[in-house]
Design a binder for these strands. Structure first.
Length: 613
RNA sequence: GGUCUGGUAGCUCAGUCGGAUUAGAGCAACAGCCUUCUAAGCUGUGGGUCAUGGGUUCGAGUCCCAUCCGGAUCACCA
């Protein structure tokens, strides 16, 4: 049983004995004791003063006395400051806590069974006309981390992606390639497929704007010019031919999309993300129409004179929303309804989470209402995991203005920086091959990038300054990875020196250390060691919190705090050089447990940890 | 204008269910610590009217109201 639970139980009994009624469990507020006071756990007694009819300090005093009597093996000392009762917990209790964490390689995780709720998470969702940029990176990393967090909280998770592979934007790239491409392919030019297509998208836009400018110069109204420019008309014609299944257009479309997918796959692989099921809009966009027709029959929607179909959401405090155009074609909303329908057919979904930027908050508010009306049981409670934009020092990223931070470039830079960084520290990496050094650079570089993005609250906009490279010191991924590498270094040395053969498992031979301490007498721990154990224990609560709030960033912040705490411990105490065998054993186990939790915690963020760096 | 969202140190960010007369980290600046398990580390100094004004109470960065400033959104685009 957790120490906190024991205390809570005892406090409820004590208040009943002293004041005639037990306080409700919620009122037993336990928190970590501030460093400037003695003790480790603090009970806030202000809420009890109403029933004790005594001053806060006096109330704390008598509860402390009773606690010490009731739980002598737990509470060794206490002191009362105002309404705060600070409890000193015996070292044996803390060692028990450590043992429990140490012996459970999955500490903090809730097991997933066949009966666990099924959560589908949609993330990434790229367009196929341009390469991924930093905004997509944030999306992908958040989606992946969220999936891991949900899994850690005992959910079956299906990761899904909806690829926007059709529409006018793809036709623009296709048209530009036909006109100016001279048959360029990824093979012929050595360009990554998504970048190649992106270049033609930009080329289209450039020529198109020239055409518009010329028409305006000839006296045409700008709005009209945008519609009358020959290029845009041609693109529209191509879209029509696509929808009519024109073999020539379709075949070009397939070829170019394949190039893009090959490029995306590389980027996804570098980011370490993957999907269980990919949907393509070209396959789902017709599905939504059926559902809309269905809703029309049921009187949920209505048709205007021009033939367009609308949902009236004014009762819900929203606007009227278009669902089918007057020519019968579908819009974004219709497609999302169609995709939802297919997904529901494919999986018995209990909860649906969409990882999509906050610019689409309104869209998902509407989608939720519509899905609910159409009878999707999870529609009403769908979760829009709405994350903020990545901004540059001079504002938002805009593809057309070329102010984007390309994902592939950024990844490459990060890994190269990490490689450069470790080149200065030759002594640490002596005896390793070039491949191993490169692998470490990959892990560290990606760790820096991922942590940089995941440590900030997903809902908030965040700033990225391309002028300043992402840090490797301080509150960063590499700091935490470094702490792990230090721990692994200690454990390797310990294992080498130990005569006992390895038993395998995450902790290797260190498992032989337990039970800790042998006899119980005099096993006194330093405050710093205890606070490390407390921090370890917090992992469970943090994982739950992250799951409840859909908030991976609190895992990142937790990992930093744990690593920080360990580094202070590392600085102040010797592990292998400790002469007292029992203390040494304890510290090795403590280190192993910290390493394990760091690895698991970082794993939830999709960040790997290196054995050395 | 309606709706949503944010405002904490020069910069980037934490701050749980409201808890400790002193609001935390990192970066940047300055000063220390490697003959010692990895210095990508540790320790210290300076830096704040928690946007502003009210309210709620034993207690407010945190909850409520108003105001100011920023961002998003309100398309027969996706």
């Amino acid at each position: 049983m957790k120490i906190e639970n024991k205390i809570t139980e005892a406090v409820m009994q004590i208040t009943e004995e002293l004041y005639g009624q037990p306080v409700p469990e919620k009122m037993v507020q336990l928190q970590q004791t501030r460093p400037e006071f003695e003790g480790q756990i603090t009970l806030v007694v202000f809420p009890f003063t109403k029933m004790s009819h005594k001053a806060p300090e006096q109330t704390a005093q008598e509860i402390g006395e009773a606690l010490k009597e009731k739980l002598p093996e737990v509470v060794s000392k206490y002191n009362a400051v105002k309404g705060f009762l600070n409890l000193s917990i015996s070292s044996e209790q803390w060692i028990d806590v450590l043992r429990e964490i140490y012996e459970n390689p999955r500490y903090g995780f809730t097991p997933v069974t066949e009966d666990s709720p099924l959560v589908m998470i949609e993330y990434s969702s790229p367009n196929t006309n341009k390469p991924l940029h930093l905004g997509h990176v944030r999306n992908n990393l958040l989606g992946w981390a969220l999936a891991k967090v949900m899994e850690a909280n005992g959910n079956r998770v299906v990761k899904t992606n909806i690829v926007n592979d059709r529409g006018i934007h793809i036709c623009k790239s296709m048209l530009a390639w036909l006109k100016w491409g001279n048959g360029e392919t990824p093979e012929s030019s050595g360009k990554k497929g998504d970048h190649l297509i992106g270049d033609y998208y930009v080329a289209f836009d450039k020529h198109y704007r020239e055409e518009v400018r010329e028409l305006v110069a000839q006296g045409m109204d700008e709005e009209q010019a945008k519609q009358e420019a020959p290029l845009i008309k041609e693109a529209h014609e191509m879209l029509v031919r696509w929808e009519q299944n024109d073999p020539e257009v379709r075949s070009l479309w397939r070829k170019m999309n394949e190039w893009v997918y090959a490029g995306f796959d590389e980027t996804y692989k570098a980011l370490g993300v993957s999907f269980d099921k990919i949907y393509y809009e070209s396959e789902t966009y017709l599905e939504g129409k059926e559902k809309v027709e269905e809703g029309l029959e049921k009187g949920l929607f209505y048709r205007r004179d021009d033939g367009s179909v609308w949902a009236d959401l004014t009762k819900e405090g929203l606007d009227e929303k278009l669902l089918l155009r007057s020519d019968g074609t579908s819009v974004y909303m219709t497609q999302d309804i169609g995709t939802a329908k297919l997904r529901f057919q494919d999986y018995p979904i209990d909860k649906m989470i969409y990882v999509v930027g906050n610019e689409q908050n309104y869209h998902f508010q509407v989608l939720s209402i519509l899905l609910d009306k159409l009878g999707f049981k999870w529609g009403k409670d769908l979760v829009h995991f709405s994350y903020g934009m990545v901004e540059l020092p001079n504002g938002k990223m805009k593809s057309r203005e070329g102010t984007v931070v390309d994902a592939d470039d950024l990844i490459q830079t990060m890994v190269a920086d990490a490689r450069q960084m470790s080149a200065d520290k030759v002594n640490k990496l002596e005896g390793i091959t070039d491949e191993e050094a490169q692998e470490i650079a990959r892990i560290v570089g990606m760790g820096a990038l991922k942590y940089f993005i995941l440590k900030v609250d997903a809902r908030k906009n965040m700033l990225f300054n391309p002028e300043e490279s992402i840090d490797f010191n301080g509150n960063t991924g590499p700091f935490i990875q470094y702490t792990y590498a230090r721990i692994r270094s200690i454990l390797r040395k310990w294992e080498e020196a130990s005569p006992v053969p390895s038993q395998g498992g995450g902790n290797g031979k260190a498992a032989n250390l337990l039970p800790l301490g042998g006899g119980r007498e005099g096993a006194s721990l330093a405050e710093r060691e205890i606070s490390l154990i407390q921090k370890l224990q917090d992992f469970q609560t943090t994982v739950r919190q992250a799951g409840q709030d859909y908030n991976p960033s609190c895992i990142a912040n937790y990992c930093y705090e744990l690593a920080s705490e360990y580094n202070r411990f590392y600085h102040d105490f010797s592990v292998l050089r400790e002469e007292d065998a029992r203390k040494r054993q304890f510290r090795i186990a403590l280190s192993a447990a910290v390493g394990q939790v760091i690895k698991n915690g970082m794993g939830l963020l999709g960040i790997e940890v290196p054995e050395r760096m």
